[in-house]
């Protein structure tokens, strides 16, 4: 549904998006995660045929974003970061206006408006002036607008940015409701919790480049390695120097806790537990410590930073060598 190959966008000499490769099948939610200014909005604008890529290509809903721009735009729903509503219109007028722009027959868009407003719980505000809407209501109405023509692809750019927690929850729930078997959603955010909650796939974008990409769990495992296990005991661990069996590594310890990395958990974990009990440690809990997306994100960013620093050092060394020569 969304496919990009070396997608690049330059504004004069500034490279906003650099060689982005994405492949999101139908029915999946891809979260494009990155800080402000990382190139998320520019990517969305290219995928919606608003900006023309400088290099590379993108195919959205089966259409090339450059050659078939209008076909792409009629099959994509976009929720922009700034909702940009017309304050003097009411909800119905606003949605009817967009229904006409999408070329839908009047009975069709009226029915869709009814159905979608009810789905996101906004039916009560349809005759209210948009200038009087709260932030959450405005974003939900924009979401309805983006869904009006029932697009197979949804591009959601920072849908909950600068929102209070309650409004953000309302919008997140509405997005969850819009997930369906054949609809592809690309969601841009810098909110890690939101990404973790909604993503099937995550792509981390940093300075215009994708630095990590894949299904959520696989990406975490790839960046952070296997999950860790934590044992909590009743008494202090003073003096415990137990020798661990093969395939178990101690990765951290505190006054009353131990953390392990285990290579083959099915075989090794029972042995480890028996060993702890033999050492007379009163274990009160033993649990898997899940990796968070935040850890994965920070790891990916620090890896890239290190690579860039070493590249820079190598370049400086080469320059010095040339100078000496």
């Amino acid at each position: 549904m969304i496919y990009t190959e070396n997608l690049t966008k330059k504004f004069n000499e500034f490279v906003a998006v650099n060689n982005v490769n994405l492949d999101v099948p139908a029915g999946q939610v891809l979260v494009l995660l990155g800080p402000n200014g990382a190139g998320k909005t520019t990517t969305v604008r290219m995928l919606d045929s608003i900006l023309v890529p400088t290099e590379g290509r993108a195919v959205v809903a089966g259409y090339d974003v450059v050659k078939d721009a209008e076909a792409v735009r009629s099959r994509v729903g976009v929720l922009t970061e700034h909702h940009g509503l017309y304050g003097r219109m009411n909800g119905d007028e606003y949605l009817e206006f967009f229904g006409e722009l999408y070329g839908l027959p009047r009975p069709v868009y009226l029915e869709r408006i009814d159905q979608l407003l009810k789905q996101v719980g906004m039916d009560f505000a349809r005759s209210q002036r948009l200038g009087e809407y709260s932030k959450g209501m405005r974003q939900k109405l924009s979401l309805v607008r983006s869904m009006l023509h029932d697009p197979p692809v949804l591009l959601l750019d920072e849908p909950t940015s600068a929102m209070d927690p309650e409004s953000a929850r309302m919008v997140r729930d509405a997005i969850k409701d819009l997930r369906s078997g054949d609809r592809t959603i690309l969601l841009c955010t810098h909110n890690l919790q939101e990404a973790e909650e909604l993503a099937d796939q995550v792509a981390i974008i940093w300075h215009g480049q994708i630095i990590a990409n894949g299904p959520l769990q696989e990406m975490k495992a790839g960046l952070l390695g296997p999950v860790e296990y934590e044992a909590r005991v009743v008494h202090h661990l003073d003096g415990w120097e137990g020798r661990l069996s093969k395939g178990v590594f101690l990765t951290g310890r505190g006054e009353d806790w131990l953390r392990f990395k285990i290579e083959e958990p099915r075989e090794t974990t029972p042995r480890l537990l028996r060993k702890l009990l033999r050492d007379r440690l009163d274990v009160i809990s033993f649990r898997e410590v899940p990796h968070t997306l935040e850890q994965a994100y920070l790891k990916a960013v620090s890896q890239v930073q290190k690579e860039q620093e070493s590249d820079q050092e190598r370049k400086e060394d080469q320059e010095l060598e040339v100078d000496h020569a």
Partner: peptide, 11 residues
């Protein structure tokens, strides 16, 4: 005001 972008997103 940012209201032009939704228009640009239409066909």
């Amino acid at each position: 005001r940012g209201s032009i972008e939704p228009l640009l997103n239409t066909p």
